[in-house]
Each structure stands twice: as C-alpha cells, then as structure tokens.
Design a protein around this nucleic acid. Structure first.
Length: 673
DNA sequence: CCGCGGAGTGTTTTT
DNA sequence: CACTCCGCGG
C-alpha cells in the first residue's frame, strides 16, 4: 500500500482520496495538478476499482500517456487505464458502437484541410462562390460552421460576433452547413466536430449511455477550462448516471476560446452536479519565488480578477527573470542559441530547456542558428508536417484503400497523374463510385481508359492499389508497397525529394506500430505524430534535444530554463487579437501560461527591428503585458540602448564612370569564360 | 481540359 | 514567403 499522505499536501490529499461523487479541482499553475491525477488513479485502483473502468480525458494524448506512465511505474495496473483526448475517445467509442448509426465498416476522419476542401466543394456545388463578390473563403466558412457547432449557437450569432461583415451571407452559410453535413454522410466522412457531435448523440440515448457509463465508472478530465460546451455536455452525459467525475482546471490558464472553449464550463459544472466538492490547489511547487512574482503581477493586471495568487512552496527566491533587448531577430536568435549552449555546458541538460513563442514561424531564425551550432532541437506546434503536400499525397493512396468512397483522397491521387486534372478526375470518379466491388474498380481503371495520355500511369496505379489492398499485408507493408509507386511521382514533382522522402520514411516507421490501416489513418488525423525530431548531427548525443514550442503546445509542460521569444506588441498580444478586451485578455493569459512554465530561470527577449510580410522593417514596441511597473520592476533588463545607425553619406563630387548597361558588360566580361 | 506562370494575398493558436 | 487563384497558350 502506498502512503498518500506522505507525498501530498492537505488539499491534494483531499482531491486524491475522494473516491465517489463529482468534484471540481481548481488548480493554479504548477500546483501539482498532474500529481493529483496520477495519484488519484493509483488510489482508485488500490480501492479496488478496475483500471479499465477509469477514463482520463486530457488535452493531448501525450499528456495522458505521461500521467499514466508515471502512475504505472508505481503500479503496473495503471497501464490499463483508458486515456486520451475527447476526440480520440470519441473515435474509439463511435467505432465500437458504429452499428448504432448504421455507419459502414470504415469511415474516414477528415483533417482540417480536407474538411475545408470538402466545404469548398459543397459551396461550389451550390453555386455560391460567385466571381467578383466578396464571399467568405473556404477556411472562413469552415471556421464559422465549426464555431456554431462547438459553441452551440446559430450561424447568425457567430457571424454577428466574429464576422459582422459577412452577416449578409447568413442563409448561404446555413445552406452550406447543411450540404456539408449531407456530403460527409454520403462519403463516410467524419470531421473533428462530428466526432464530438456524434458522441453526444450516442450518449443522449438512454440505453447507449447506460452501457457506456457502466464501462467507465470513474472519469477524470484535465484542463477543463479549455473544453467547449460540446465537450462539457459529453462530460456531463458520461457521468450523469454514476456521478463519479472529477474535473481539473484553472480559469487563469484558459487559452482556447478561439476554438469554442469557454471557462463557463467550470462555472456550470457545480450547477450540473449540485453535490460537487470543490478543492483549490494554490501552492506552487514548480517555480522560484522570483518567477512567481512576475506571474502574479501579470495576473494582478488582468481585467477579470482571478482569485488565485500563487504561493511558492519552495521558498527559494531564485534569480530574477531577465529581459534582453536586441537589435533584430537574428541577434535575438543568436543570443538564445549561445545561451542554450552555455547553460548546457554549465550542466543544464538540453532537455530541461524550452523556448516558447506565440506563433510557430517566430522560431525559424532560431532553428537556423541551432542548426549552425549543431544543437539538437525538437519543434512542437505549428501545423506544417502532416499537412505538407507530399505527406497528403502519399497518404491519399492509403485513404482510398481504407474508405473507397473517399472522394477527396481519390481525386488527389488521380490528379497526381500527368494529364489528369480536376475534370478528368471527376469523370473517372463518377464511374468509380458506381462500382461496388474493389476488384471491379481496379479492372475498370486498368481497362476502360485506353488511348488516353494517362493510360499507362493509370494502369500502374491500379496495379499497385490491387497489390496494396491484399488482406494478408501488414499496415507497414501496405505503406511500403505504395511507396514503391509514389517514389517516382515524388522525384518528378519535387527537387528536394530526398528531404521529403525522409518524412515519408518517418511515417512508415510509425505505421509499424499499427495492425489496422483505419486506426493508423485515424490516429494520423486525431493524434498527430510528433513533428520530426531533427536529426542534426549533434555534438551532444547524450542528451534530449532542446524543445521549441508554441505557447499553446507548451500547456501542461515545464522546464528548468524557459525562453520566451519576441515579447513584442503585435506578436504577444498578436496584432489581430486587439479588437476586443476579451481577445486581449486571452493573449494575456497566454503570456501567463508561458511564464509559469519555468522552474528556475526565465529569459524574455525582445528584438527592436522586425520584418513582417514583405521586406519592410519596422520597429517593435515592448509588449503591453510587461510594461506596467508591477511587472517590469520584477524583471532585470540589459538596458539596451538602441544604437544609432551609422549613416553613410554619398560623396557627391565624383564623376560617373559607368552606367547600368556598361557596368553589366564589364561584369560579364570579368567572369571566367 | 491541362498545366504553367504571374499576380495577388494574408500571415495564430489546435483537435 | 508560401500558397491560392486566375488567365492564357497549347
């Protein structure tokens, strides 16, 4: 038996050892929230709860895995606990209960860009994308529809709040939403929102709900402040009957309202579960007092007063956070890279250092610098990898194998053939979708298009599809088969094909872990693989790489040393989030989240000169979140004085010796023949 | 109807 | 700067 009292403070202990009934845990940053979840899992199991009947819903699957692996190290049974994101849980549950909806054997999960493309096709087919008129773009349409679903409000309401200039298109968007819903059902598609929507429908059915909640008797939800109303409903329904549900959150760290999250969920929870216990965790075990002072000052400045003030349990004052000014982003990157190396030479492992930024692209200059210095790093956040063209191209073949009605994948795959464009692909697909057996489709493709310029290619394609669709193949072997075929196209289409091939090799490696193609593809959409750890030939091979991450992706993580890059107006807060006080407040919470990731040392950096869009340089202003005296007084700065640019004046008294034409000739002459 | 090339655009955060 | 859209030539 494990002595829980030993490792926990009184409030943590209460949270851990309350077995039955609903509970709301308000946990400040670094207050041992993770530890509470970890230990509570152990506690429940020691109380005789079956591990399989515990469900841990978290924000990323990585978070779930981390918590579970830590409790597993004390008690192996914890490995059997069910954990994941709302979306992955929904996928699993829907798959298992697919009969309820009359779903076919396999359905595809659309990632965001596929979903946008689908929306575009729907809008197109309704004749709504008229030329000349300013009509919302596919991304915008998708996001309007998504918002209305996640927040449970009408299209009109979303338009009024977020896109007032599109209010006139209210009815059009409603029509597109309807069409899009039909389209998805027809093609066996579920998008991210559908996963949650369908799960809620499933849980609204008395019998299904009883069945499912019997399977998961104890529910824990992490980061509850970042759940949206739809997820709030799901939590409620899952626990409605047995009422064993613990939600953990911190309203001061709510940073996902752009996606429909609302900390109202935290407020509503006690209303839905009237008997719920409340526990507050306020002692911070993570950071030194100097870091907490800054975080608390930022908290103090927020419009919406959050009650919490973090008290350091360490009693260690630590070093004051530093603010470094730089001339431009290159100097900033250079300094950070050097500092990282110096710290590591001084004994701080690279794995204990994290660099945070508001937007993924901010880190590019740093990546270049780290490459130069051969410091290994890992990039988290930013959504490039799995949405890169070659990755999608490659996967489209597999998607076709998994869901024969996957129109988007089919047409992507066909359009790669030279000579096939949108129209030809569409014509072929009209035929393909009328054939029910896969073998016949293959026959059709290899025999019915003789005489076209793409005949040979199409034949090759159908041959490989047939080969890859054999039942006895493992997922990995299916990928290898497709690769055999795709490699040619890759080389034809991309000059940098060898770099891209590397990505595909990584994907192949990942697929080795899967026994079902469907699950592999669904995971690829829902729990995206970690972006590649860059294989820089490292001089520090013994160590974990340093982490470069967006602040959003840094949620729940911590490092001994944290750098926050580019703390400038327009970046943090980001320029388009200045329209309403709520948006600015969310940016401020984001800054707060970033600050509270640091255990021992914190470095903020600010480059005066920056480039945006074109070539135009402009001068940054320090972030409004640092300027107030209560914050700035707690930060040391390097008192950078902006150097006067050395002005070079043109010497006027010189007679021209060349003009543009003659200097060109002269230069050409000077080249080695 | 395909595909190329030029112009234009807008540029967060994530499941 | 990367992607998308548009128009034109083949």
């Amino acid at each position: 038996m494990f002595d829980f009292k030993l490792d926990l403070n009184p409030s943590q202990y209460t949270a851990v050892t309350s077995k039955d009934g609903p509970m709301l845990v308000l946990a400040g940053a670094g207050s041992g929230k993770t530890r509470v979840i970890e230990y509570r899992a152990l506690f429940l199991i020691q109380e005789g709860v079956k591990p399989e009947s515990i469900l841990l819903l978290t924000f990323t699957r990585k978070a779930a895995r981390e918590m579970l692996s830590r409790s597993s190290s004390r008690d192996e049974r914890c490995q059997r606990i069910n954990g994941g994101t709302f979306h992955s849980f929904a996928y699993k549950t829907l798959k298992r209960n697919s009969k309820f909806f009359g779903f076919p054997k396999s359905f595809s999960v659309l990632d965001e860009s596929d979903a946008e493309e689908a929306v575009r096709r729907c809008a197109d087919s309704l004749g709504l994308i008229e030329k000349g008129k300013r009509f919302p773009k596919k991304e915008t349409l998708k996001s309007i529809i998504s918002s209305s679903i996640n927040k449970g409000v009408s299209i009109a309401e979303v338009l009024k709040k977020q896109y007032p200039y599109f209010i006139q298109y209210n009815e059009d968007v409603e029509e597109i939403r309807k069409k899009y819903a039909e389209y998805k059902i027809d093609k066996n598609y579920l998008d991210y929102d559908d996963l949650l929507t369908y799960l809620r429908i499933l849980l609204e059915d008395e019998d299904m709900r009883k069945k499912i909640s019997r399977e998961y008797e104890y529910i824990m939800v992490d980061e509850y402040q970042d759940t949206n109303p739809l997820q709030g409903d799901i939590t409620y329904l899952l626990a409605k009957d047995h009422r064993n549900v613990v939600v953990v959150g911190d309203d001061a760290q709510s940073i996902y309202s752009f996606r429909g999250a609302s900390h109202d969920n935290i407020m509503i929870f006690p209303e839905r579960f009237k008997e719920c216990k409340k526990v507050a965790l306020e002692e911070n075990y993570r950071s030194t007092q100097s870091i907490l002072d800054v975080a608390n000052a930022v908290l103090e400045n927020m419009e919406n007063k959050y009650s919490k003030v973090l008290i350091s349990a360490n009693k260690e004052i630590g070093r004051s956070p530093k603010l470094q000014y730089f001339k431009n982003q290159y100097e900033e990157a250079d300094w950070i890279a050097r500092k990282i190396r110096d710290l590591r030479d001084g004994g701080v492992n690279l794995g204990n250092q994290g660099v945070l930024f508001r937007s993924a692209f901010i880190s590019i200059s740093l990546q270049i610098q780290l490459d130069k210095m051969r410091i290994p790093y890992q990039v988290v956040g930013g959504r490039k990898f799995y949405e890169m063209a070659h990755v999608k191209d490659f996967l489209s073949h597999l998607k076709v194998l998994s869901n024969r009605r996957d129109e988007l994948a089919w047409s992507r795959m066909l359009m790669m053939l030279p000579g096939v464009g949108p129209k030809t692909a569409e014509n072929i697909l009209v035929n393909v979708f009328q054939i029910s057996s896969f073998d016949e489709i293959i026959d059709h493709l290899s025999s019915q298009y003789r005489g076209n310029k793409y005949e040979k290619q199409l034949e090759r394609l159908s041959f490989i599809l047939k080969k890859a669709s054999k039942d006895e193949l493992k997922v990995f072997e299916q990928l290898e088969t497709i690769m055999e075929y795709y490699l040619v196209l890759l080389k034809d289409n991309y000059d940098d094909w060898n770099i891209r091939l590397n990505d595909l090799e990584v994907i192949k490696e990942i697929s080795n872990r899967y026994s079902s193609l469907d699950t592999f593809l669904a995971d690829f959409a829902i729990d995206r693989p970690e972006k590649g750890i860059f294989d820089t030939a490292s001089s520090f091979e013994d160590q974990e790489p340093v982490t470069l991450t967006t602040i959003h992706s840094a949620k729940g993580l911590e490092w001994d040393v944290v750098f926050i890059m580019n703390v400038a107006e327009g970046v943090l807060p980001i320029s388009f989030a200045l329209n309403s006080p709520e948006e600015v407040a969310e940016e401020q919470r984001l800054f707060y989240v970033a600050l509270t990731r640091a255990r021992k040392e914190l470095y903020l950096s600010f480059p005066f000169e920056a480039k945006r869009g074109g070539n135009e340089s402009y001068y940054n202003e320090l972030s409004r979140f640092i300027k107030p005296l209560n914050v700035s007084s707690k930060i040391d700065s390097n008192n950078y004085k902006q150097e006067n640019e050395s002005v070079i004046t043109v010497d006027d008294g010189i007679e021209p010796n060349y003009n543009k034409k003659s200097i060109l000739d002269h230069i050409l002459d000077s080249y080695q023949k």
